[in-house]
């Protein structure tokens, strides 16, 4: 007889593993409401909404958030363009150096972030480029390309070349074919890739510490608070908001690519 029920120990180990992955994140949600200011005391002595107001009125948080959103938006746009071009080239033909290109795209995320960071840092120092908004974007866009590429390349493989030929036969030029045939076919994959790229950039801290100089993105703001805690309750609130903000694009990307052969996100 074929048994389709997992043995008890396996169910416990798997369920326990999932709990291990999720409980710490849920704990943040409790701490955002604690009345305790100085320590990480558990259980919280009382609950309050006070810190949400306190966080709301902090100009430094808003400035960091603004910079993060700006960096993530521009990096996502650059990654969308470069990733789509690269995916189109790699999926439509075999050519000399094709493997090199796919390796090159994956490398920034395969090597530890600190390598990318210190590389860019030493390149900026050798070329005497001062830190600016654009040095952050340069780093972020580089490792965001792979996310868009992974999503786009999977979709391009499923878009049949016949569609393109049919469109050309019916008199559409290349731009019309792209606009009316290719784009609608790959749109959801690009949207999912773009959302993931945004989430990746919004959260990035390792490369950013090397390319930001004195500027503060939201993750750098958090890092400073972690290393030298000044106002713990406000940090708790920011942490909770960051969790919620990053979950939305992940869920969105999942629902956009559900049911296709490769689901978005598996290639972080």
């Amino acid at each position: 007889m074929r048994s389709d029920r997992a043995p008890l120990w396996l169910r416990i180990a798997a369920g326990g593993g999932l709990l291990f992955l999720h409980l710490p994140i849920l704990l943040i949600f409790v701490y955002a409401f604690t009345t305790e200011e100085r320590t990480y005391q558990w259980p919280p002595p009382g609950l309050t909404l006070h810190w949400f107001g306190a966080a709301w009125n902090r100009p430094d948080i808003w400035a960091a958030l603004g910079l993060s959103v700006k960096v993530a938006s521009i990096s996502t746009v650059i990654a969308l363009v470069l990733g789509t071009l690269c995916a189109a080239a790699v999926s439509r033909s075999r050519f000399f150096g094709r493997e090199v290109i796919s390796l090159l795209v994956i490398l920034p995320i395969a090597l530890p972030g600190i390598i990318t960071g210190i590389s860019l840092r030493s390149a900026f120092s050798l070329a005497e480029i001062p830190f600016s908004f654009w040095t952050i974007v340069l780093g972020h866009a580089t490792f965001c390309v792979v996310v868009v590429y992974n999503n786009a390349v999977a979709r391009f493989r499923r878009v049949s070349g016949n569609l393109v030929e049919a469109s050309m036969d019916l008199g559409a030029n290349a731009f019309q074919t792209f606009r009316f045939v290719i784009l609608p076919n790959i749109a959801t994959a690009l949207l999912a890739g773009g959302m993931l790229a945004f989430a990746l950039s919004f959260d990035e801290v390792i490369v950013t510490t090397f390319t930001a100089g004195q500027q503060q993105t939201l993750p750098i703001w958090m890092l400073e608070e972690l290393v030298r805690p000044r106002q713990r309750p406000v940090t708790n609130v920011v942490a909770m908001v960051v969790v919620i903000v990053t979950f939305l694009p992940i869920l969105g990307a999942y629902y956009l690519t559900r049911g296709t052969d490769t689901v978005a996100g598996s290639g972080k």
Partner: peptide
Amino acid sequence: VFYLGIMLPLWSSYLVKVYSWKLILAKEGI
């Protein structure tokens, strides 16, 4: 459930994950 259960922690903020452990492991923590 399993797919999202693995994917959400994978993608959620790295710093927040580290921070949550600072809360858990603290001397006065959970």
